[in-house]
Amino acid sequence: MEILQVVGIGLIGAVLAVYVKERNKEIAVLVSMATGLIIFLFAVSKISAVLQVLQDLASLANVNMFYLTTILKIIGIAYVAEFGAQVCRDAGEGSIASKIEFSAKILVIVLALPIIVAILESILRLIP
């Protein structure tokens, strides 16, 4: 069960981060960031398996690939931005974290615009 490894690594990282924090703070931030990165790397490798199945289903149901890739991009942006914002908040930099989240929202809106336009056009076509 991989979840046991993940929890083990997380706890060890947390204890080491707290231990190093009172001696020097910079390396404590690096320890917590490294722990987060290792767990996130493990999660991303699992996600790629799920996305492969999604793509096969989409091609079966001949859904336009553009929409699926846009959705996956938005999910990717959300993951990375949330990870970065949390690391910044751990390091005590709340303002940087909120800037990261703010720019992530803007990027998601930019990505979602074509789909919104497509939906509105199809709705307008329905109205006689």
Binding site: E2, Q5, I9, I12, G13, L16, A17, Y19, V20, R23, N24, I27, A28, L30, V31, A34, T35, I38, F42
Partner: peptide
């Protein structure tokens, strides 16, 4: 799932504080 990196960084942190 390479956990060595966490131990390396923590070890370096402790060593630098001792040297300090």
């Amino acid at each position: 799932m390479s956990i060595e990196l966490i131990f390396q960084i923590a070890g370096i942190g402790i060593l630098t504080s001792i040297f300090h």
